[in-house]
């Protein structure tokens, strides 16, 4: 399973990011969310949304194997095992792997597929579904 986004439906409200930070850290702080919304205004007038595809590239480079996979296929960070080396962040193809010591001192973070963002999204821009079969 993974999270999908249709950026054309996003209205930029950021409720997803609030719900995300609340799930990941128990805090109300969208700067600590695992989704990115890039507003492009005044032209062309769209929100470009980046979400985790659960590709696993981050887990592959993690030296302490702190990024593990759960039963539904989501990669999640075990906070206690992260050493903040920063190896995972640059390999993320979507730019949604975060190592930001100024925001969170002791761990990297990413989408764990909790689904709270989908629950609060009013425009249907986000949904969770099976990963599509890899195309050649």
């Amino acid at each position: 399973m993974r999270l999908y986004v249709d950026s054309t439906k996003c209205s930029g409200c950021n409720a997803c990011r609030v719900a995300c930070s609340l799930n990941l850290f128990g805090e109300t702080n969208p700067k600590k969310a695992a989704l990115v919304i890039e507003p492009q205004f005044p032209a062309p007038g769209i929100y470009n949304v980046k979400v985790c595809t659960q590709c696993g590239d981050c887990a592959a480079v993690c030296p302490t194997e702190a990024i593990k996979q759960d039963a539904q296929g989501a990669y999640y960070v075990v906070y206690e095992e992260c050493i903040m080396c920063g190896a995972c962040e640059p390999v993320c193809p979507e730019g949604v792997m975060f190592v930001r010591p100024n925001l969170v001192e002791n761990t990297a973070w990413k989408c764990n597929l909790c689904g709270d963002c989908v629950a609060v999204c009013g425009t249907g821009a986000l949904w969770i579904a099976e990963k599509e079969a890899a195309t050649a």
């Binding site: 209205s11 205004f41 005044p42 032209a43 007038g45 929100y47 609060v120 009013g122 425009t123």
Partner: peptide, 27 residues
């Protein structure tokens, strides 16, 4: 109208964002 544009945290965005071809503008 080209997209919905919300205030913070709003699931039912009343804000409509428009591309005005007649005047070649966005508003």
């Amino acid at each position: 109208v080209i997209t919905d544009k919300a205030c913070f945290g709003c699931p039912s965005p009343c804000g409509k964002y428009s591309r005005n071809k007649k005047y070649n503008s966005f508003v």
